[in-house]
């Protein structure tokens, strides 16, 4: 089984590496879009899937990143790749500022507020604030990304760049899921009050995950800006946010494979069946209703974490007399002192 799944992974890797050479520029471009949606979906999944925060404003963070890159590249001639960390940072900072006052809101209220954030950002961009954003026409980027002198401008270049980012993202987010941080997000999702009362700083984690998701979306904005060349407000509308939301919800909130499948189904499948294009959103809508009724956990629900605790079992005493026969504690009336339980820091 272990070997079989390793072989599967290797097979998938080979296919992904060869794919753009077989597919041609048109399909490669499509794969790039899918890749961007996948990574964006994964970053939204942290907030929406792992922490259960009903966030529909993810494109706002994406927009902050894309515009940071576009403004720096066009007005100040900064090399595009250099803008990536700054895009991430600014998007994260913006997320913190925007989320701080509303982070305590309950699910559906938060949803409406995050829609509001997207709208406010979009309107700000359209209105060409400080003359920086180019209004509704947006900004045109002319210089390509260059990595150590190698210029990235063809679809196939972007393909490998996006693939590399996707692999890094999957690995890091997988590790994050299996960590103290990932668990904290799940506690918040399942019962925020119990989490807070167990000693978890829920506000801190909710803000952190917003910032982290936004940093990712912001960095991705840089790639998007370089790829699309014209950064304009239409790319960051409310309906884009809905699309991302649907990717996570349909695929499986909290599940990395789920989000991958969701991104494929929502961005890839309609392209394969072009005659369905105009029915695409109609079908999404119906699918969202049907999913909530028949499979609310999503197509691929998150798997439970596995902990290796064998080595700790059967080493500690039980304080309940009727339970475990090898209990180190005495009977109910005469409890034995239990020095080992008091301070294991």
């Amino acid at each position: 089984m272990k070997i079989a799944s390793k072989l599967q992974l290797a097979g998938a890797g080979v296919i992904l590496l060869v794919l753009p050479h077989v597919a041609g520029p048109y399909w490669t471009n499509l794969l790039n879009d899918m890749g961007l949606y996948t990574i964006l979906g994964l970053s939204l999944n942290l907030i929406l899937g792992q922490a259960g925060l009903f966030h529909m404003g993810h494109t706002a963070f994406y927009a902050v990143g894309a515009y940071t890159t576009a403004i720096l590249a066009t007005k100040f001639d900064v090399p595009i790749l250099w803008t990536m960390p700054l895009s991430g940072l600014l998007a994260g900072l913006f997320a913190l500022l925007a989320a701080r006052p509303v982070i305590h809101l309950r699910g559906d209220y938060l949803l409406v507020v995050t829609i509001g954030i997207v709208e406010i950002v979009r309107i700000t961009l359209v209105n060409n604030v400080f003359g920086l954003t180019g209004g509704s026409n947006g900004l045109l980027i002319v210089n390509p990304i260059s990595i150590f002198g190698f210029e990235i401008f063809r679809p196939i270049h972007f393909y490998y760049l996006i693939l590399a980012l996707a692999v890094i993202t999957i690995i890091l987010f997988y590790l994050l899921h299996n960590s103290r941080f990932g668990r904290a997000l799940n506690y918040i999702k399942h019962d925020e009050l119990a989490a807070e009362s167990s000693g978890i700083n829920t506000t801190h984690y909710k803000l952190s995950v917003f910032a982290l998701g936004a940093v990712w979306a912001g960095m991705l904005g840089t790639i998007f800006a370089a790829k699309i060349e014209t950064v304009s407000p239409q790319s960051f509308s409310y309906s884009e946010s809905v699309l991302l939301f649907a990717i996570v919800i349909l695929g499986g909130p909290g599940s990395i494979p789920g989000v991958l499948l969701g991104a494929f189904l929502i961005t890839g499948l309609p392209e394969l069946f072009r005659e369905l294009q105009s029915f695409r959103l109609l079908l999404f809508g119906a699918a969202m209703v049907a999913m909530m009724i028949f499979r609310p956990q999503g197509l691929i629900p998150p798997r439970r974490r596995v902990y290796d605790v064998q080595k700790y079992l059967a080493r500690f005493p039980c304080a309940i007399s009727s339970r475990v026969p090898n209990s180190g504690a005495g009977t109910a009336g005469t409890p034995a002192p239990n020095p080992s339980t008091a301070g294991a820091e």
Binding site: G107, V242, L282, G285, A287
Partner: peptide, 17 residues
């Protein structure tokens, strides 16, 4: 409660389209 919210969003997208 939130599954119903998602269902409502889906219904909205469906109707609009």
């Amino acid at each position: 409660r939130l599954t119903a919210v998602v269902s409502a969003l889906g219904a909205s997208i469906f109707l609009q389209n």
